[in-house]
């Protein structure tokens, strides 16, 4: 009874202590605007100079302050890099129909032309099709101003179809994330690159030390002569160990002989 009370009292004291520290820390954090609260409140002026329906406006947010991926709209580093002048013709990310004028488009599936994009968690795990996110024809390019995929409204028009309550911050998740350990990711998404490599080094380092360590310990213990041979297996192990350890000892003894000779000569 006394012991239980002591434990409860201890837990209570630590809880109160932690609560006070937490409260103190919490109060010192300046009130940063939350990632989610960036809805644009204006009803009219954003589209005044453009021809627009104003239909989107209620859901829009100002563009993200920080995107993790370095986006260079002019130059794309795929298999062939595209120079600035060619980019004006070939980069389609601002078009209302990203496939306008492409030959054989209607006879081909999405993944034949975009194999890299097919490897995303949504398609691979949950079996979600490209069109459930990218919509019907014409497929608007990502950065076209009125595209549903544009970051200013992606959360409302794409993600929240399935993720109820998705915010602009949530839509900053990279559905087609770059391969996390590829060298090209170091430039496009450095944080992902360095954390994955950091974790991989931890993984490989731990295994590289402890796998050989365990096996060598196991092997050496098999040859342990000081252990009484309790069974036939033990006896066998002891006789083998006698041979092997004797051999190893000889190896080291032999090495020592020339050293002594050198010393004597000097």
């Amino acid at each position: 009874m006394k012991g239980a009370m002591a434990v409860i009292r201890l837990a209570y004291h630590w809880g109160a202590f932690g609560f006070l520290i937490g409260a103190a820390v919490f109060l010192t954090i300046p009130s940063v605007p939350s990632w989610a609260q960036e809805e644009v409140t204006s009803k009219i002026y954003r589209y005044r100079e453009r021809v627009a329906t104003g239909y989107y406006e209620g859901y829009e947010v100002s563009p993200r302050r920080a995107r993790a991926i370095l986006e260079t709209p002019g130059i794309r580093r795929d298999r062939f890099s595209i120079g600035a002048s060619a980019a004006a013709v070939r980069i389609r990310t601002h078009l209302p129909d990203s496939h306008r004028g492409l030959k054989f488009y209607y006879r081909t599936t999405c993944i034949e032309c975009h194999p890299g994009q097919a490897r995303n968690l949504h398609s691979m795990r949950a079996g979600i099709t490209c069109r459930q996110c990218h919509g019907p024809e014409p497929i608007a390019a990502i950065n076209h101003y009125y595209s549903a995929m544009n970051t200013i409204r992606r959360h409302a028009y794409v993600c929240s179809k399935c993720h109820e309550g998705a915010t602009a911050s949530f839509s900053g998740f990279y559905v087609h994330e770059p391969p996390s350990t590829a060298l090209s990711t170091r430039e496009s998404f450095p944080l992902l690159f360095y954390t994955s490599w950091g974790m991989l080094v931890l993984l490989l380092g731990t295994l590289a030390f402890f796998v050989p360590h365990s096996f060598m310990v196991g092997f050496r213990e098999l040859l342990d002569k000081t252990k009484a041979p309790e069974s036939s297996v033990g006896k066998l192990a002891n006789s083998v160990s006698h041979r092997i350890m004797g051999g190893i000892r000889k190896l080291f003894e032999k090495k020592k002989v020339p050293e002594n000779e050198v010393d004597d000569a000097a």
Partner: peptide, 23 residues
């Protein structure tokens, strides 16, 4: 992820997912 991305940027989920996987 919908709730937690209110407090962290969405791309942090990509990073956290990889940490989770490798660990």
């Amino acid at each position: 992820p919908v709730i937690s991305s209110r407090f962290i940027p969405g791309w942090a989920l990509n990073v956290l997912l990889w940490i989770h996987r490798i660990e």
